[in-house]
Amino acid sequence: MDPVLAEVESKMKAVIQNLYNLIVQGVDHQGPATQEAMKQEITRLVENLLSLSQSAPSVRFDIPPEVTEYVERARNPKIYTRELVEATQRMNQLLKGRCDAYAQMRDILAKDIVLAMPELENDVRKVVRSTGGSIDG
């Protein structure tokens, strides 16, 4: 992993931990002692956020605009990923069907060429074999 990315990740984890600690302290509030602990936690949170904001711009990665649009429309980017995978699977199935159809057409055409022009049989067999087909079956 890129050291800069690892540093940013660790700072984000620290921010998340600060927020979690504040939630726990808020739920289990016990008076002045908790208030002091929360003040210290908020101080650490601000420090971690400042540190994160200083180092985060050095991380470079591209987010597809479609994902950004999904997030801006308050949609889960995992939905985008799922829809993209499903669309890719459909396209792969379509392309596989086309490849199979062209392969069948190649084999049938090769058989017909050999029947019509037997003198080309060796050449046709070479071409069909080199493209992964068979005219014997």
Rank of each mutant, 00 (worst) to 15 (best):
I42Y: 04
E66P: 01
A14H: 06
Y80I: 01
V127Y: 09
N21D: 10
N48C: 01
Y20I: 10
A6V: 04
I63P: 01
N76L: 02
V114R: 05
V46D: 09
M1G: 15
E83P: 02
N21C: 00
V8C: 00
M117H: 15
L49W: 02
S55E: 01
T88W: 06
Y102A: 08
Q89E: 13
E36Q: 09
R125A: 10
N76T: 02
E9L: 13
V114Q: 05
A110H: 03
M117I: 15
G132D: 10
R75F: 02
L49D: 01
E119V: 14
N18D: 13
K39P: 00
E119C: 08
V24R: 08
S55L: 03
R60K: 15
D136I: 12
E41Y: 02
N122D: 14
K11H: 00
M91S: 11
G31N: 13
R60M: 07
E86K: 09
K111S: 05
Y20A: 13
F61Q: 04
E47L: 13
T34Y: 04
M117G: 09
V124K: 08
P64I: 03
K11A: 00
A101E: 11
R98D: 05
N76Q: 04
L49R: 04
A116V: 07
P64V: 04
L19M: 12
M105Q: 10
Q104D: 08
L120R: 14
S130R: 10
P77A: 02
V127M: 10
A33R: 15
T43H: 10
I135L: 09
A110M: 07
A74L: 14
Q25A: 10
D100P: 03
N18V: 02
L109P: 02
E119I: 13
V15I: 15
P65M: 07
K78D: 07
N92W: 05
T131N: 13
Y80S: 01
D62W: 01
V128D: 07
A103L: 13
S55Q: 01
V4W: 00
I108F: 06
P3M: 01
D123Q: 10
A103Y: 05
L49G: 08
R129T: 13
R125M: 06
V67I: 12
V24I: 09
I23G: 09
R75T: 00
P3G: 03
C99N: 12
K78G: 07
L84E: 09
L22W: 01
M1L: 11
N18E: 07
A87R: 12
T34Q: 06
P118L: 03
S134Y: 08
A87W: 03
K13I: 06
I23Q: 14
A56R: 03
P118V: 03
L94H: 10
V71P: 02
R98W: 08
I79M: 10
Q54A: 09
D100R: 12
V4G: 00
